[in-house]
Amino acid sequence: MKAVAESRAGAVRPEPRRGGPLRIVWAVVSRFWLVPVVVAAWEAAARAAASIDFPPPSAIVLRMRELWLSGPPTRLFLSDDAIADLLPGLGRMFAGWLLASLVGVVAGIALGRAATAAHYVEPLIHFARAVPPPMLITLFVLLFRSSTQTQLAVIVFGVIWPVLLNSMDGARSVERGYLDTAAVFGLGRRERLLRIVLPAAAPKIFAGLRLSLSLALILMVISELVGSTDGIGYELLQAQRGFDSPGVWATILLLGLLGYVLNAVFVLVERRVLSWHVRGTRTT
């Protein structure tokens, strides 16, 4: 057979070059050079303004350290505050996001493959999705009483829609050729769902999961602004009530950093899981 000739002629694409240390340094610099410039400008502007409510970033960072990173090294320097206030909130956020993701993916794929059911259910979904989740806090307080349950409910209700709709769309638009092939080779229902529909829909599902993750952070904070006793939102409220303006800024900065890190980690995982998709669509 002539496979040797063919494999030489076709396809073997050069792997992306792994750079030396210099190349990596250059990559980081060219990507992030604007950050220190903005921070320096901010510092200069804040010092010139000399307002208590507009502290320079250096003061904000000091405040952040004081608030959350003044603990002993054995606890990764996390202060009591960080452990008591930040972790429960983040725990609720992840719990809510995971629960919403699980329900969203399962329900989305089921609805995506069942056209008739989706036909009836979809208007309801679009109605529910249109209700702003923060407005539901009062309702959930009535329903659940407990603040943890209320916060979880707000997060789940707020973040489930992108996952659900994207999973539906992904499961619905599976290439017909894939399904024909699965049918011809006699794959059973279960296999067809798990080995064909799920991976085929995965790129869209991941897009939904990513959107939901950033929404989960927002809803976590909002859910902690009402009737909460811990969490980043609660801390923000406390700082504002105590006229601790560096504390307010510190909390906002922390949220920004959290959002950035969460997204970066998610993208890393996504590239790993969907490498066939990422690498397959980048070229050609």
Binding site: G177, D180, T181, F185
Partner: peptide
């Protein structure tokens, strides 16, 4: 019965390796 379709890009599963694609129907 087995089928080889015209459009391989729509009949090979891109998330499986060559061996994975060939082995999948053998599960049954």
């Amino acid at each position: 019965l087995a089928v080889v379709f015209q459009d391989y890009s729509r009949s090979l599963f891109p998330w499986l390796s060559a061996a994975g694609n060939v082995a999948l129907p053998l599960r049954r």
